[in-house]
Amino acid sequence: TLIAEEAKRDDGVEVVTVATPNFSHYEITKALLEAGIHVICEKPLFFTVAECDEIGALAERKGLIVGVTYGFTGHPLVHQMAAMVRKGMLGEIRMADLQYTHGFNAGDDANASEAQKWRTNPKTSGPTFVLGDIGTHLYYLSEMVLPHMRIERLLCDRQSFIKSRAPLEDNAYVLAHYDNGAVGRLWVSSVNAGNMGSQRYRFVGSKASVEWTDSHPDQLIYEVQGEPGRILHHGMPYLEAESLAVDRMGALHTEGLGDSWANIYLWIAQAIDAKIRGDEAFLATHHYPGIDAGTEGVRWLEACVRSADAGSVWVDYDPAATRTKSTETQDA
C-alpha cells in the first residue's frame, strides 16, 4: 500500500532503501521497481542468481537503478589499493588473503534477539549465515581491487559450531584459484571469541604487498621487496588521485565507516541522477555497487554452498559470469 500510494504522488519518493531481513529483499525490490522507484538494497541481494537476473532485467526495462550497500568500499585507502594494483606497483598479483571475523555469536542462541534469530534461520536468511552476512563484503572489495582477475575454482569448508544454527554456518574458510594463477584465502566467522569485529585485506604481488584493515582505516601498509616497510596515511598528496578523490576529512582527521557509507550513497545517488537525465555516457564509466555487483555476490555464495554441501570439494566457478558493473568501470 505504501509503495502504491507513493507512486501516485507527483512529489513521491524517488528512491527507497531496503534494509529488511534477507527473505523480503526480492519481493520489496520488485514491487518498488514496478512502481517506478529506484532501490538501494542490503546484501546479500537475493537468494538466487535467477532472482538477481530477473530483477536486473526489470530494472533495465524500467530505466531504474538498484544500488547495493557494500559500505566498506567507500574508504579512500581501498581505492588507493585498487589504483596501486592497476598501475602495476605490486607487480603480478599472486595472493589475496581476506578476513572478516567477530565473536558476537560465540555463545548459543538461547537469548538471541529477533535481529539475530532471522539470520540463523534458512527461511529468512537464505542458504548462508556469515558467508552472506559479512563474507560478501570481503568478496566484493577484493573484486574492486582486483578487477582484472576472475575466480576459476573455489573450495568452501563451513562449520556450525553452535549446532542449532545448522545447516547455516557461523564459521567458514574459502580457498580460490584465479585465472592468472593467483590463489586466495578467505576466513569469515562470528564465533571468533573475544574479537570485536575486524576486517583485514592483504594483496601480494611479485614486487610488493599492501595490507589494509577497517580498524585502522586511515593507514595502508605498503611493503616493497628489499625495501623498508612503509605506512601510507589517507589524505596525503603522495597518494594516487583515485584515493584523494574520495577523501572527505583530510590527512589530520580520521575517516570512519560513516564517511565510507556516505561515499557509497553519493555514488548511487549520482547514478540515479544520471539515469533520470538519460546520461548513459556517465553511467558507462561511473563506479558504484549496483545490481551486477549484488548478482556476483549471490553467484559467489551459490558456489560456496555447492562446494561445502558436496563435502568441501573444489568446484568450478560459473565460467559465464560477467564482471560486475563497478569493476568494469574501474578498468575503464
Rank of each mutant, 00 (worst) to 15 (best):
G258V: 07
A208N: 08
L266H: 00
A241G: 03
E240V: 02
D259I: 00
I264D: 07
P237M: 01
E280C: 01
A274P: 02
T322W: 03
R230M: 03
D273P: 04
Q270F: 06
E242G: 10
S312P: 10
A293D: 15
A293S: 15
S260T: 15
G235P: 13
L232Y: 05
T285G: 08
R299K: 12
H287G: 08
W314F: 09
W212A: 08
W261A: 04
Q219K: 14
C304S: 11
D214E: 10
D273N: 09
V246S: 00
L244F: 01
D279F: 04
R248C: 01
L220R: 13
A241N: 07
D279A: 06
L301W: 09
D259Y: 00
E211H: 01
G235Y: 01
A321T: 12
D259P: 01
F282L: 11
K325Q: 13
T324H: 08
L244G: 07
T285M: 04
G229L: 05
S215T: 12
S243K: 05
W261K: 05
A310S: 15
D214Y: 03
P289D: 05
E227Q: 14
T213P: 00
A308L: 11
H286C: 08
G311I: 10
Q270W: 00
D279T: 09
T324W: 04
D318I: 11
A284F: 02
D247L: 00
E227N: 07
R299Q: 14
A262C: 07
P217F: 01
V313S: 11
G229D: 09
H287F: 10
A245P: 05
S209M: 14
Y288W: 13
S312T: 10
L301I: 15
L301A: 05
V315G: 11
L283G: 03
A271R: 06
D292V: 00
Q225E: 14
K325W: 09
L266I: 01
P228G: 02
L220A: 09
A208K: 02
G258I: 02
T322S: 11
G256M: 07
A271K: 01
L220H: 09
T295K: 13
P319N: 06
R306A: 15
R299L: 14
A269G: 12
A262L: 09
W267N: 15
S209C: 07
L239A: 08
V224I: 15
I272A: 04
R323K: 14
T324Q: 13
G290H: 06
T295A: 14
D273M: 08
E227A: 07
P319C: 08
G256F: 09
G235D: 08
P319V: 11
P217C: 04
G290P: 08
D309V: 10
D316E: 15
I268L: 02
A310I: 00
S209K: 09
K325R: 14
A308S: 15
L220M: 12
L266F: 05
F282E: 05
E255S: 05
I264Q: 01
G297C: 15
D279R: 10
P228F: 01
